[in-house]
């Protein structure tokens, strides 16, 4: 392992230990924060008890659905825009400013339109994710070597065969990069929406625990969400890197 990695682990461990000492010594009172070891114990208790399984499944299921929608719509839109350069140029400023717009401002409107079910949450998650997918996929499509497309034409491949054998495999690292962003954005969108206003899910459980001063539930849930999203992001980043290295791009 690299020296920086070891030091980083050490630093994080020291930070946790510092929190533990501050909490146990009473410098941080129990109403503000539990000592870290209690959070770990509570997390195990919550997971083993199974009371949160429904909320966890719901949030992760919705996030998966939002990612799938964003990937399908995003890749399809990117392929279409790649064929229509003038339309793409028209939409360029939209993509450039898209993430500047506070997407959660649309959540109240979506709640009014779709009701307070899963739909507005999935909608927000997919909405946040889809443009990252479009931009990344377009980037990948732009980088396909011309010679490969010419070869396809020489060999008289149909558009479908060209897509399956050349376009998509060539753009794969970029599409995977898009998937990585889509997962991060979908989780942010869905948990944020649940947190602001909803009736179930992990985000909702956190805000419910907060309003009830239930730190024994709140902190373990926060840790769980952070751990899940960091783990998923790291795994996808590793995979993306492996693909890039194999392609000689990194």
């Amino acid at each position: 392992m690299k020296r920086a990695t070891l030091w980083r682990i050490g630093l994080l461990a020291a930070a946790v230990a510092g929190l533990e000492i501050l909490c146990l010594a009473g410098a941080i009172d129990r109403l503000t924060m539990q000592p870290p070891h209690r959070m770990a114990v509570d997390l195990v208790r919550l997971l083993a008890g199974g009371a949160l399984n429904a909320a966890i499944l719901k949030t992760l299921g919705n996030a998966a659905l939002a990612v799938v929608i964003a990937m399908v719509v995003g890749v399809a839109a990117a392929v279409a825009l790649h064929r229509l350069p003038s339309f793409r140029r028209l939409l360029d400023p939209l993509f450039a400013t898209y993430y500047a717009v506070p997407m959660f401002a649309f959540y109240p409107l979506l709640v009014v339109l779709f009701g307070l079910g899963d739909t507005p949450q999935i909608f927000i998650g997919a909405m946040l994710a889809v443009v990252a997918v479009i931009v990344n996929t377009l980037n990948g499509l732009d980088r396909i070597p011309k010679v490969l497309l010419k070869t396809a034409r020489v060999n008289r491949l149909s558009p479908w065969e060209t897509a399956v054998r050349i376009t998509l495999p060539c753009a794969a690292p970029y599409i995977l990069g898009a998937a990585k962003l889509a997962v991060a954005y979908a989780l942010i969108g869905i948990i944020g929406a649940e947190f602001i206003m909803s009736t179930s899910g992990m985000g909702y459980e956190i805000s419910y625990a907060y309003t009830n001063f239930d730190n024994a539930t709140m902190y373990p849930l926060i840790i769980l969400i952070l751990a899940v999203s960091i783990a998923v992001n790291t795994l996808l980043a590793r995979w993306e890197r492996a693909l890039m290295v194999r392609r000689g791009l990194a």
Binding site: A184, I191, F195, I222, I230
Partner: peptide, 21 residues
Amino acid sequence: DLLEPVLVAVYSVPKITLYPI
């Protein structure tokens, strides 16, 4: 090298969960 990965990790996490804290 020490802190960049930490920043990247925090960047991609749903930060709303930290709001109650």
